[in-house]
């Protein structure tokens, strides 16, 4: 089956700034794919290369097998884009805006009118159809961007920060809608800052940083790379716990009076053994809590680690060996701590 999006060594340079640095990524047909990354990671640049708003400097990019530059018409016809910015025609009522967009995609006037109504109903702003964009509330504007992306019935729906600044209810409405579209076969590419959103919606996520791919995995896989924290309260101050510190399951142990924090790989599976070891050391457990790793923590760790790697490699490229040696040691020790937490 043809991939919905395939890029190889995609690069984009703005003078000295490298927005995309050899990005290779595949999004399968029918997939719900998330792009995560801090500001400036290259997410929007990546999307804009696909739709033709940014010219790539190097590499290849195809949408359903169509090169985004040589077969741009076929590639763009497959894409519905709800961008981050409100780039909507202010001169016309929103129903006509949607009709125009459908028309640009070769849809006849009558059919365009039918689709515009359908899209507006679907996102819940049909009663505002004769209003102009500027008169809509912030949430309605977001809904309109989605309606405009849907009016051409795309095979690939690209949502760039679709829920930025919207209220909880609208966010959930949008989630339901895009989930439904994905279940009906539409491939969805989502960029977001809300980790919960990616965790809840995406089959796979790619984490980008400084124009590079840090990793691609399912949200569950990513979470498994992190640590859970078991916090135990004991009846009396626990003192030192050498047996637990030596235990294979413990990545890090911290004792503070009657509170013991142990970082482990899988919290649920480790609890019985930890309780056993605590009792064997003569501690009576009165309370217990397991904090699961969040995708957000993994995300922060991965992008931080990437930042350090980039800084280190840039410095060594500069050839300032001796002074880098000292800094490098410091970095490595921090790197080890990250590794012990399971982040690679």
């Amino acid at each position: 089956m043809q991939a919905a999006i395939e890029t190889r060594d995609l690069t984009k340079e703005y003078g000295d700034v490298r927005a995309l640095q050899g990005l290779s990524l595949t999004v399968e047909d029918g997939e719900f794919f998330g792009l995560l990354g801090p500001n400036g990671a290259g997410k929007t640049t990546f999307i804009n290369v696909l739709v033709g708003l940014v010219r790539k400097t190097g590499g290849e990019a195809t949408v359903f097998g169509h090169d985004v530059e040589t077969d741009y018409r076929q590639a763009r016809d497959a894409i519905g884009l709800a961008p981050q910015e409100f780039n909507v025609d202010r001169f016309f009522p929103i129903r006509e805006v949607l009709m125009h967009k459908a028309g640009y995609h070769g849809i006849s006037k009558d059919e365009a009118a039918r689709r515009a109504d359908e899209a507006l109903k679907r996102v819940g702003i049909y009663d505002k159809r004769d209003e102009r964009f500027d008169w809509l509330s912030g949430g309605m504007k977001r809904r309109l961007l989605l309606a405009r992306a849907l009016v051409t019935d795309p095979d690939l729906l690209i949502l760039d920060e679709p829920t930025a600044g919207v209220d909880v209810q609208l966010r959930r409405d949008l989630w339901d809608l895009v989930t439904e579209l994905n279940e009906d076969g539409t491939t969805v590419l989502l960029t977001t800052h809300y980790i919960e959103e990616a965790e809840r919606l995406c089959d796979r996520v790619a984490i980008l940083n400084e124009g590079r791919k840090v990793t691609v995995a399912t949200p569950d896989d990513l979470k498994r790379r992190g640590s859970d924290t078991i916090t135990v309260r004991t009846a009396d101050p626990a003192g030192s716990l050498p047996a637990i510190e030596r235990a294979a399951y413990a990545k890090k142990v911290r004792v503070d009076g009657d509170q013991v924090e142990v970082q482990v790989g899988d919290g649920g599976a480790t609890v019985p053994r930890l309780l056993e070891d605590l009792q064997a050391a003569g501690n009576e457990v009165v309370d217990l809590d397991v904090a699961r790793t969040s995708l957000e923590e993994i995300f922060v760790d991965l992008t931080k680690r990437e930042d350090r790697t980039v800084t280190r490699s840039s410095a060594s490229e500069a050839g300032d060996g001796e002074s880098d040696g000292g800094e490098s040691d410091t970095d490595d020790s921090r790197g080890e701590e990250v590794t012990r937490e399971g982040v690679r």
């Binding site: 033709g52 018409r73 763009r76 910015e85 780039n87 909507v88 967009k101 995609h105």
Partner: peptide
């Protein structure tokens, strides 16, 4: 005006030649 308000993107991202 389309460039200034970026709604010319509606045209540019379409499959028109």
């Amino acid at each position: 005006h389309g460039r200034w308000n970026e709604y010319i993107h509606e045209t540019l991202t379409s499959p028109m030649a």
